[in-house]
Amino acid sequence: MLDRDYRDIVAGLGLTLAGVAAAAYAGSNYAMGTVSRMGPGMMPVALGVTLAAFGLMISVPALFRKGDTVVLKPRPLVVMSISIIGFALMIETVGIVPAVFFTTVFATFSETRVRLGAALILGAGMTFATWALFIVGLNLPIPAFDWPF
């Protein structure tokens, strides 16, 4: 328990900042127009200001109440990101079969619950299932294998 609700304070301030930044950028770069003939800048400025106001409505009351601690889990975040970025890099360079295998197996490392053997079997199963569904079944134009060498 924290003496202030820092979660909402930070979230609200973040939204306020985003709103002010968007409104300022749109206001200085895009034509505002008039009320009867609105330019492209009018709506983003109005939305940015409104967002900033709601951000304050979230953060200000949070100053006066207690809050919970927020726990960020870095391991799944990093492992999942690598797993997804790996997919994006592999899909067109080496094909869907290795990409799916890598993504599935690597994603299991987010937790320590799955042993490597089980992960490899899961990866093989997923690879087969996606190959059967997307390549054979739906006939998507994705290469199954596309070795660069």
Binding site: M80, S83, I84, F87, A88, L89, I91, E92, I96, A99, V100, T103, T104, V105, A107, T108, S110, E111, R113, V114, A118, A119, L122, G123, M126, T130, F134, L140, P141, I142
Partner: peptide
Amino acid sequence: PYHFLYPAILVFLCIGAYSVRANP
């Protein structure tokens, strides 16, 4: 168990995202 399901869900999301415009 969920720890066998989420990698599968993740793969489906990746393929789905890619297949919309075939853009990695």
